[in-house]
């Protein structure tokens, strides 16, 4: 029964997202299509963080850095393609998504793997601070990357097609591309956490020592999960770059990593769909409350504290409670 409820909530929300562009077109408010596209993109990043935070118990305070790396890969390749200058003088730039998007995932994933090698040897507070510090390092790397705009960001022409079918400048078409990718990421993540691999990750969250005693070498599992999360976040970043045709290090500022954690917890940790709801609510608030009061964070800040103290089940947990707080038991 509980699962049914959750299925209803998920279906209603995904359905709402599906008809949203049509409604916006009918009301001649196309601006909102772009805004909700961005929400879906951040939702993908939030789902990737949920994989390690919610399921693996790894409090990564640097997820925005992987997002930014993915975005910069697309941005830099497109910029080179536009100007006809070879990248590093070696190979031509490109806007073809079958190259740029996988490459974004690859670079973001490998960076995550490298950072994981250092940080996953630690736990708890060390892990939080180290992921934060590495993310800062990447942030400052792009800040000082003069050739690609540094702190001012990089303007480039991003328009491309998705396998010759959808032009990314098509407001509605690109919306559904992002929507489909989000659904795919949700489905694959759902399969992943239910696999044996997912069970090990869950076991690590509950009691890493016991898992080791049971004979699991936990480190490779954690590293793999961390890498996958980094790659998926990089994919979200790649979509963001195409969306914005502008990228600046601001997207990987450490507070953006904090925002992603808030999205995951707000929506419900370890629920996969929760972060989608969390990202939606968070970004809607961020975009629309300032219309009414400039100082909304005065209320939002303490609200986070209250949520942490009293309502950690998240939106999903509230709308469709289950026997246990987190899935996978």
């Amino acid at each position: 029964m509980a699962l049914d409820r959750r299925a209803i909530v998920i279906a209603v929300l995904l359905g709402a997202f599906a008809v949203l562009p049509l409604a916006a077109e009918l009301l001649d408010q196309t601006w909102y299509i772009g805004q909700f596209r961005k929400i879906l993109i951040f939702a993908i990043a939030a789902v990737s963080l949920d994989l390690i935070l919610g399921y693996g118990g790894m409090v990564c305070f640097g997820q925005a850095a992987f997002f930014g790396i993915g975005a910069y890969v697309v941005a830099i390749l497109s910029w080179h393609a536009q100007r006809n200058i070879p990248v590093f003088g070696l190979f031509p730039g490109t806007k073809a998504i079958w190259i740029t998007w996988p490459l974004a995932m690859l670079v973001a994933g490998s960076t995550a793997a490298l950072i994981g090698l250092f940080s996953l040897r630690t736990a708890g507070i060390h892990f939080i601070m180290i992921t934060l510090a590495f993310a800062q390092m990447i942030y400052f790397f792009f800040v000082s990357l003069r050739a690609y705009g540094g702190e001012d960001g990089l303007r480039f022409r991003s328009e491309t097609t998705v396998f010759g079918l959808v032009d990314t400048r098509d407001e509605v078409g690109f919306y559904y591309v992002v929507y489909a990718i989000l659904c795919l990421v949700l489905f694959l993540s759902w399969r992943l956490v239910r696999s044996r691999f997912g069970m090990v990750i869950l076991g690590v969250r509950e009691n890493e020592r016991r898992m080791r005693a049971l004979g699991f070498a936990t480190f490779p599992y954690k590293l793999a999960a961390f890498t996958i999360a980094g790659a998926v976040s990089g994919l979200a970043g790649a979509l963001f770059a195409v969306e914005e045709s502008f990228i600046s290090p601001a997207v990987m500022h450490w507070t953006r990593s904090g925002d992603l954690i808030v999205m995951v917890v707000l929506g419900g940790m370890g629920t996969l769909f929760g972060p989608v709801a969390g990202a939606t609510l968070f970004l809607l608030m961020e975009k629309f409350i300032p219309d009414f009061t400039e100082h909304w964070k005065l209320i939002f800040g303490p609200a986070i504290v209250l949520i942490v103290l009293f309502a950690k089940h998240g939106l999903i947990g509230w709308a469709a409670p289950k026997g246990t707080q987190r899935e996978g038991h």
């Binding site: 409820r5 209803i8 909530v9 209603v12 929300l13 709402a16 709801a277 939606t280 609510l281 939106l315 509230w318 709308a319 469709a320």
Partner: peptide
């Protein structure tokens, strides 16, 4: 509550 939550968000 389920419906309320879903409809509310919509």
């Amino acid at each position: 509550k389920t419906l309320l939550g879903a409809v509310g968000t919509a």
